[in-house]
Computed example of a mutant assay.
Amino acid sequence: MLGRTTTQFSHVKPGDTHFKTDGLRDFFLYCDLGIAEATHGKVIAHLVKANMAPEKGTGWHRHEADFQIVIMVKGWAKFMYEDKETLVSAGDCVHQRPGIRHYLFDYSPDMEYLEIVSPADFKSIDVAPVCDVPSPAPWK
């Protein structure tokens, strides 16, 4: 069974890969952890951290994905999941069910989270607003 796997072993250490600005959102930095390559696109895992203060947030959207979790490593972020405001703090794990409409609208300057999604080339689709969204707090 183990000899028939279609994925590869992967071991990424700090310094092997770096945070870059070429991700989904320009106000975040992204650090690829090598999982998409090792799984031939079945799964992506990357670290995401704040790069700029929130102004408009992500806007209402959903993902075309089979699986998605966010594990907050540092700081905090505030999301709207459908019509429910949710504070996600360091140590929290959120499973975003497929197709859930959401909006990340505020986060701390030290926010950093691990995101794991399948498939690796998931799509982000803008959707109509679900409800009003609170304004982000200005960074001091």
Score class of each variant (00 low, 15 high):
R25Y: 15
D32P: 10
I100D: 05
A137R: 14
D92Y: 00
F9D: 10
M1A: 13
T58R: 05
D106W: 03
F9Y: 13
K13S: 10
E37C: 09
W139N: 05
Q68E: 14
K13C: 12
D16P: 00
H18V: 11
E37Q: 15
K123F: 04
R101G: 01
A53T: 00
G99R: 10
F19K: 05
F67Q: 00
A120H: 01
S108I: 03
H46F: 15
D106C: 05
V70C: 08
H46T: 09
Y107Q: 04
K84L: 08
V73E: 07
G57Y: 03
I69V: 15
W76Q: 02
P129V: 00
P98T: 09
S10A: 13
D66E: 15
T5M: 14
P98K: 09
M1E: 14
E112N: 06
Y81E: 12
R25I: 13
K42M: 12
M1C: 12
G23Y: 03
K42G: 11
I35T: 07
G59V: 08
V94I: 14
R97H: 08
V73R: 09
T86M: 15
F9I: 08
T5Y: 13
D132P: 04
E115D: 09
S108R: 06
E55Y: 08
L104V: 15
V117R: 06
M52F: 14
G99C: 01
